[in-house]
């Protein structure tokens, strides 16, 4: 018995939703970044499932590129988090509200 492809897509959808939910309820910048990572990985699962759907390898390469770009994004995001912590002594987005009009 093989697993229908839609089950992979549904798992990916559930993970994406969890990540989005985390993005909305978290107030710590690092944990918001973690939720974004979760969403990116859900998208990766989707790409790889699509690759299996068509029997081609291109989707896996896209997932690979997403991974590399996520690594770059994390580098910048963490550098900004460190700077914020150094300047304001907090990573809570309730304290970091200088841009709020």
């Amino acid at each position: 018995m093989t697993i229908p492809l839609s089950h992979y897509l549904i798992v990916s959808g559930i993970l994406f939703t969890i990540g989005l939910f985390g993005l909305m309820i978290r107030r710590n910048i690092l944990l918001i970044l973690l939720s974004i990572e979760l969403m990116l990985n859900a998208a990766n699962l989707n790409f790889i499932a699509g690759s299996a759907l068509h029997g081609e390898i291109n989707g896996q390469l896209t997932a690979f590129f997403v991974m590399v770009i996520a690594a770059a994004e994390v580098t910048i995001g963490l550098a900004i988090a460190v700077l914020l912590f150094r300047k304001m002594d907090s990573v809570d987005t309730n304290d970091i509200r200088h841009l709020k009009g």
Binding site: I3, P4, L5, S6, L9, I10, F16, A52
Partner: peptide, 17 residues
């Protein structure tokens, strides 16, 4: 919404590449 759309798709078994 996502589950509704996905379950409406024709779903072949996953082919291993």
């Amino acid at each position: 919404g996502m589950t509704y759309i996905i379950s409406g798709l024709i779903s072949p078994p996953a082919r291993e590449v």
